[in-house]
Amino acid sequence: MIETGLIAALTAFLSATLRMAMPLTLAGLGETFSEKSGILNIGLEAIMLSGAFFSFIIAFLTQSVLLGVCAGIAGGIAVSSIHAYLSIYCKVNQTIAGLALNFLIIGLTSFLFLIVFGKSTTLPECPVTPKIPIPILSRIPVVGTVLFNQDLFVYFTFIAIFLAWFFIHRTEWGVSLHAVGENPKAADSAGLNVFRIRYFSTIANGFFGGLAGSYLTLGLLGFFMENITSGKGYIALVVVILGRRNPPGILLAALVVGAAEALQFRMQTAGIPVPSQLFTMFPYVITVLVLFLAMGKSREPSALGIPYIRSKR
């Protein structure tokens, strides 16, 4: 009897971990593409928030999850395109541009939300993606229930991780991506279109970031409220570094962060008198340590955050 209880608790904990990790993984994948090509986008928070908002609003109005997801992706790409235009064409400080976008989108989404729904005390709800258990596999205890009794977002994320890994490490496009991020001048001399590759990678960032946002509203919560991402975009930046800009690593890092979050919820509900902040703090401290310890070994792309100016030596 105790054993079944334990198994149930473990399953619930692992499921929660996986669910928390999914948006971070998706957003992290997007940011990886962007950073690999040399564009550091602190505005990941804005991309996710925009994705969350537009997916919710369209899903609410059309009652269609699919259209909602498309709108979320479009919303994410719109934000990342502004950042791309500013950092690639205008060659501005990418950090500041990202930060300003965060402000703009927090304001814009809560403003638009008020326009559409007015001030109501009840939160409007939208349809949530149903769980689709995979036959047979989902009946394996613990692992099966955790991995194979999820919604389409989760399955898609796993496929996306593999595809992204394959793309970055096993194709010529991936090599170009690295080249542009490491030495844009040389890449340009070799005939690569630095600007086009960077634009492409930022659009990938918007795609995955927007998807991550729509997972928050359409996969996890079923509603939208002001600043719903509450810093998840920044945590995704952490995940990218912890995962060393490698798709499987990003999943692993997101799971660690997700586990910390899930554990925190568990402890709060169990009434354990340790401040939950101790656990919330964990991923950030780990990131600082990883940055410190990985120094010299795994480094960031050489041209990260530096605009490419063709005529400049």
Partner: peptide, 17 residues
């Protein structure tokens, strides 16, 4: 009041550009 965040963000983006 969230209009102030929109305005602030837009001002910065425009000044950058």
């Amino acid at each position: 009041a969230s209009i102030s965040w929109i305005i602030m963000g837009s001002i910065v983006l425009l000044i950058l550009a």
